[in-house]
Design a protein around this nucleic acid. Structure first.
Lengths: 134, 134
DNA sequence: AAAATTAGCTTGCATTATGCAAGTAAAACC
DNA sequence: GGTTTTACTTGCATAATGCAAGCTAATTTT
């Protein structure tokens, strides 16, 4: 999402959001933080869908620039950085929750993972609250 | 979204959704159908952000293949096609609603359009119901 | 204290997606 | 019958993504 195209200039809220997380990877990185407790570059590199290291670096930089995540040295291992969701980033929990709900209702593939779906479906508010108060 | 990459094979619900609407344009097309009553190729071509005609054709084809929209001849103008959201497509209303809410809370640009945000914020359920029962 | 390893990148290059302008075909209008 | 409308497709330029290798700093190992 390094392009400065017209999406930026339309005042539309959908376009605004897409400019920040509307690409192939950003929401997957955010998913890892929200659902799987990942927080470092190397942990993100191991995400199942396989993100290239240059793209990962670009997306983390972008999310940081947009105020969705923070980047800080890990005090216990100073060659590592810890990425964490900001309040603005945690506020994306309802978006992630609704995507999970929609996909859970529509994904008929036998290998579809339903754990997250069942959790959100059981108690959407608890799921969101858990992330927001993290 | 014509790529057959690993996102398809991860059983993750977030990845499943992204494969269907996680690109720069699909949700904008869906937005036009949900919010602005647009339904034909030429109407989509006039969306403010400016989509190329080949990309538009590709995305409409993909959304149709995924069962999000239907494509039918306009009986009143047989050179035109009418695209309409399926039940599966209308079920994306909560996703769109949450993106609008998040953006509305975070978009500080002076030219940000707040109409949709205010509407969803005032009564999220009514907004969703209006789309689902359309 | 050197050597090896870990972590987080960057770089160069191939592949793929996107964007733009022009063109095509069928239907409708005059 | 000629022009316009509608929905595309095509060819080509530009940009994004993916892949493998390389680099630097911090840490661990020997």
């Amino acid at each position: 999402m390094s392009k400065k195209n017209k999406l930026l200039l339309s005042g539309c809220p959908v376009a605004f959001g897409l400019n920040i997380f509307g690409d192939r990877w950003s929401l997957l990185i955010i998913r890892e933080m929200m659902l799987n407790g990942k927080s470092t570059n190397s942990q993100f590199q191991s995400i199942e869908e396989g993100i290239a290291t240059n793209i990962l670096a670009d997306r983390l930089r972008h999310l940081e620039e947009e105020g969705v995540v923070t980047k800080e040295r890990d005090p216990d291992n100073r060659r590592s950085f810890i990425y964490a969701l900001t309040q603005k980033g945690r506020a994306l929990a309802p978006v992630v929750a609704e995507i999970i709900l929609w996909s859970g209702e529509n994904d008929e593939r036998p290998f579809a993972k339903r754990e997250a779906f069942l959790k959100v479906k059981k108690d959407r508010e608890a799921f969101i609250e858990e992330i927001k108060s993290a």
